[in-house]
Design a binder for these strands. Structure first.
Lengths: 113, 113
DNA sequence: CAGGATCCATATGGATACTG
DNA sequence: CAGTATCCATATGGATCCTG
């Protein structure tokens, strides 16, 4: 694929990074790539996230149709979060991100600590 | 490529998004993909960024060896910012980001306004 | 279990003015 | 031209407590 308009391409970069960027969004999407997860499952794997933050991030991802919220059971209530079809498409992008990170982690991440 | 350790892969995602995420970093890198640019050139294309913010972002990108600062001329001073070799490697990733953004912009960006 | 509510800390970026 | 310095606004995420 080629990007016709350079400036537009950069705007798209900004838009996408807006979606996948931030402290948690990318991680949440990455976790949901594998399989659907419940609220507290996500809360556990994300380790340091709080309920309210996780809720906010999930709502955002639902709003932009990346993630789907499904009520699995009513009492006690069980919710399952999974990627939508568009959400699934992010898998490829995440793979690319990880690939780049693996190739360049030495030069780029070393200094972090 | 395959990612052996899933959890580690997600950590890498977080690390990479830390680099390329944020409001300006991705855009700066995208702009520098084309060719080196001077401080005020970047300031112009980035439109709403302030000097101090641009300085901060550039320093960060220099620190992680993504961007190189070159003094082109001494008086009046002229500085040129360009991608390092690792920096150049980000081009592929940015292309993937733009590709994804183009494919999914309708479903994902529509609601933004 | 899956959040909502409230209040709080910090990070991020911005406005404005100034400099060699 | 390429920044620095100060001070400031807001966004982001967190802590804690509470609930159906």
């Amino acid at each position: 694929m080629e990007i016709k308009n350079k400036q537009q391409g950069i705007m798209i970069v900004a838009d996408v990074l807006d979606i996948v960027g931030g402290k948690w969004r990318g991680q949440i999407l990455a976790h949901l790539c594998d399989d659907p997860k419940r609220f507290n499952e996500l809360k556990t794997v994300l380790n340091k996230i709080t309920s309210s933050t996780l809720t906010k991030e999930l709502r955002y991802l639902e709003d932009i149709k990346m993630v789907e919220r499904k009520i699995i059971q009513d009492k006690p209530i069980v919710i399952e979060y999974k990627l939508t079809d568009h959400g699934m498409s992010i898998k490829d992008l995440i793979v690319h991100i990880v690939e780049w990170g693996q190739k360049h982690r030495d030069s780029v991440f070393k200094k972090d600590e």
